[in-house]
Simulated assay, not measured.
Amino acid sequence: MTATSTASTIAATRAPADARVIRLRLPTRVRKLVLLTHIAAAGVWLGIDLVMGILVLTALGADPTGAGAAAASLAAVATWPLVVVGVVTLVSGVLLGLGSKYGLVRYWWVLVKLVINIVLVTLVVLVLWPGMASLGVAGRTALASGDSPVVGAMLVFPPVVSSTAVVVAMTLSVFKPWSRVRRSR
């Protein structure tokens, strides 16, 4: 067997594996716009988490009027705005992964960021959102009656966990640790 035929055999065996890789060719301006959207959405996500943390602390420790207003506001901030920025971050991240050399599951840091995003959006929809409706009602009722709303101390964890995870994802984007994901042959 000659070197040329060996090279063509290797290329032929790798072709089907390479054909399965989905890759978008994003023009430079589009890629930069998607990257800007991704960074801005992650920044907004972190900002909403910080606002949520302040509102939770206010709802737990303020006077009855402040606690009621914080609880009612928390119900508005922690629902659809958080889901929207999470989905925008997810979609823009997937587009960047498919349109860049890093891929979606080619590098561990990208895969970890993808998992963090999916887990956080899922937690917001399935865990946080259902409790926020009753918290909003409790906040508005407390405002009307002048009493403090009943706010569980467990509400401290969602903004802490979410903001920590978003900062970890941002750190992964900057430092790009770890090597490529190894694929079995």
Rank of each mutant, 00 (worst) to 15 (best):
M1W: 13
M1Y: 13
T6L: 03
T6S: 00
A7D: 15
A7V: 15
S8P: 04
T9K: 00
R20G: 12
R25A: 08
P27K: 02
R29D: 08
V30G: 09
K32P: 03
L35R: 02
L35A: 10
T37G: 15
I39R: 11
V44N: 00
L46A: 04
L46M: 06
G47Q: 11
I48H: 02
D49H: 05
V51W: 09
V51Y: 05
I54S: 02
I54D: 01
L55K: 07
V56A: 00
A59I: 03
T65I: 01
A67R: 03
A70L: 02
A71T: 02
A71K: 00
S73N: 09
S73E: 09
A76Q: 07
A76F: 03
V77M: 04
T79H: 13
V83C: 07
V84K: 07
V85A: 10
V85P: 00
V85Q: 07
V88I: 15
L90N: 01
V94D: 12
L98D: 12
L98M: 14
L98S: 10
Y102R: 04
Y102V: 02
G103R: 05
V110Y: 02
V110T: 05
V115P: 11
V115R: 12
N117I: 15
N117D: 15
L123S: 07
V125F: 14
G131T: 07
M132A: 14
S134A: 15
L135H: 07
T141L: 14
L143H: 08
L143F: 12
A144I: 06
S145E: 10
G146S: 09
D147Q: 11
M154K: 12
L155P: 06
V156R: 13
P159T: 03
V160W: 11
S163E: 11
V168Y: 09
A169N: 02
T171K: 05
T171G: 09
L172G: 02
F175L: 14
F175P: 06
V181D: 04
R182A: 15
